[in-house]
Structures are given as structure tokens and as C-alpha cells.
């Protein structure tokens, strides 16, 4: 796993926790502990995403750190990178 993949793995982990808490809060909107945990993960995500985007290009089309040229570049999410094909 290269540095970029490690950084993306970290972001995915935080986003997964955020998503689980969000759908939990849909059916438990008054759960203060879940809301606190959600807010903590959201803070972590913000810095992880901006660090990633500065180094490797945009994840979100509307990120402040995104640029149009980088958005168009490969790989797209369903594609494998060259070194992965060979490994």
C-alpha cells in the first residue's frame, strides 16, 4: 500500500464512521452521545481531506483545494492504477 492509498484508507474509515452515525441519527435524532461522536469525526475528516487533496488531487468537486484540471485526471474510482495491475 503506497502513501496515497494509506491516506485514502484513513479518510474512508472516518467517512464510514460518519455515515453510520448519520443514518443512526436519522432514526435516533435525540441521541446526544451519537451527535458528539459525529461532530468529532467530522472535525477529523476536514483536515484529512484537505491534506489528501493538496497532495493527490480532488476528492470532492466543490472542495476549496480542488482544481478543474486535476478533477479530470485518471484514475477514476473504478480503475486500477498501473502499479496495482502489475503487483
Amino acid at each position: 500500500m503506497n502513501e496515497q492509498q494509506k491516506a485514502l484508507r484513513k479518510i474512508r474509515g472516518i467517512q464510514f464512521a460518519i455515515w453510520e452515525l448519520r443514518i443512526f441519527l436519522d432514526t435516533h435524532p435525540n441521541d446526544c452521545n451519537a451527535l458528539k461522536r459525529l461532530q468529532a469525526y467530522e472535525t477529523q475528516l476536514e483536515s484529512a481531506v484537505s491534506q489528501y487533496e493538496e497532495a493527490y488531487g480532488p476528492l470532492n468537486e466543490d472542495s476549496a483545494t480542488a482544481n478543474r484540471w486535476a478533477w479530470v485526471q485518471e484514475p477514476w474510482p473504478w480503475e486500477m492504477q498501473k502499479e496495482e495491475e502489475e503487483s
Binding site: L8, F16, L59, N60
Partner: peptide, 15 residues
């Protein structure tokens, strides 16, 4: 809706 340029869970199928 907005799009994120990544999969929810990674997929790398070598074979």
C-alpha cells in the same frame, strides 16, 4: 446530489 471521486469501499481485483 454531489459526487465524491472515490468508492465507499476499495475494490482492487487483480485476476
Amino acid at each position: 446530489w454531489s459526487y465524491q471521486k472515490k468508492l465507499q469501499y476499495p475494490i482492487h481485483i487483480h485476476t
